[in-house]
Write a protein that binds this DNA or RNA. Sequence first.
DNA 1: CTCATAAGTTCATATATGCGAAAAAGATTT
DNA 2: AAATCTTTTTCGCATATATGAACTTATGAG
Lengths: 260, 260
Amino acid sequence: MSGETIKTARRVLEVLEHFDAVERPLSLKEISTRFDYPPSSTSVLLKTLMQLGYLDYDRYTRTYMPTMRIHGLGAWVKNSMFGTHIIALVDYVVESTGETVSIGTQSDLYMQYIHTVPSPHAIRLSIKPGTIRPLARSGLGWLILSSRSDEEVEQLVRRINAETPPEGRKTDLGELMEIIRQIRTDGYVMSQHTVTEGAGVIGMLIPERRHGRVLAIGVGGPVVRLTEKKEAILQILRSGFERFFERDCGDVHLGLNSRL
Amino acid sequence: MSGETIKTARRVLEVLEHFDAVERPLSLKEISTRFDYPPSSTSVLLKTLMQLGYLDYDRYTRTYMPTMRIHGLGAWVKNSMFGTHIIALVDYVVESTGETVSIGTQSDLYMQYIHTVPSPHAIRLSIKPGTIRPLARSGLGWLILSSRSDEEVEQLVRRINAETPPEGRKTDLGELMEIIRQIRTDGYVMSQHTVTEGAGVIGMLIPERRHGRVLAIGVGGPVVRLTEKKEAILQILRSGFERFFERDCGDVHLGLNSRL
DNA sequence: CTCATAAGTTCATATATGCGAAAAAGATTT
DNA sequence: AAATCTTTTTCGCATATATGAACTTATGAG
């Protein structure tokens, strides 16, 4: 499974995110040091971002600062991908459970968190939107797979194993199908310690696709807290669906006919 | 003056901006065609953006879609760079003049629009935030230069001319100093047809620096409309300063002592 | 004012990336 | 089911980019 990314693409986004982290102008030196980029590479990259309109450069303080161009990006995604009702659902579940709530979808052969609202608790599961997890080895990944046909799952597992390097862990189809059958029966997933020791997720499929994508909602937090209030969380999710989705959603599985 | 940018950096931002323009999932082919990128280069780039968390990929619709990671970037810039009072000033001037209003600053050897609020008119001057203009050949550029000492202006012009390719237009210091003296006398700039035929800008220096940066506010639009209501625009700018800035701003020049 | 230090730029070379052509995979039509 | 078309991936090679060392410029300390 290739994890290689284009170095410059990664750097562009690292730099822009770093400005978000510090929230002040930065010098070439500060960025170069922070990411261990060579100064000459950093200089060319920052000049490029200035030319493209994303940064401005003050010769007198010798610092770079983002322009407002960056701020406008992606404003449409929230409504287009989630609609006001899914956003309302997420906010409702955060308020009602007190935990971090995320929306996940299948992204290539991964499960990807495409939206996250963090818990107000100081002790919280911290998930950055965009984060990817193995599709066949994460709670929401299993949940999403449970919406696919057995044949599709088999095909995906074959693909995943084909792209796994020899030293990587292969996915056992039999074990995975067992997990998926259980999820289909329960109508939800609860996974503990699967990705992060001590952390878990309780999730359900969202009874609506967006842009052809299966979406899953997950409540994440320390396993101890999740275990204590598991039944409450499930009830909150169910009542959230009733409240924010118009149609009957007694059977939240989107069916074996996943190619819509 | 080197206009070269790193190809991949440019592509990263072109792709992300294109999603904003179309507001729907896109296939590799659509992106490749839109920008005339080779398919193999497009494939690697999109996979990289997925790995970095900015896009998700749906294998079934074979389309990419941004995640919410992009949406959070730059949210702090508005308040940090402008404060609520400069934002309020801009909105007030847009409402009162009916024209596009922008904030410009010196960025390296350019004047850069770092924030823009478009006019509600259908016929409006359209300026994308981040856009750069020659410092010595634009209205807001001259305005910003008017806040520098004569010595600093001379040094900048020398630098600009050194970086101008042989076939490019050199800046005549004498002519420029004449323009700048006039602006210093008037307390504002009105430029017509300088960058875009038929378009102009009326601007004043903002009586406050942010992060060490000189800021200029400009009202842009068709020359005809600007000429008609020039005095009104100047009055609106002045009353805006009085309203949104606490200190006395009778002399909006920030002084010859520009190194604060 | 001089010297030392720090930051940023330049340039030749090494390496990563981009490209085009071919191949593979998927979808549509017959 | 087979053929055809479209989209995406693969791979060897050409080109762009990244790097390190040296140089230049700017700043701060004495």
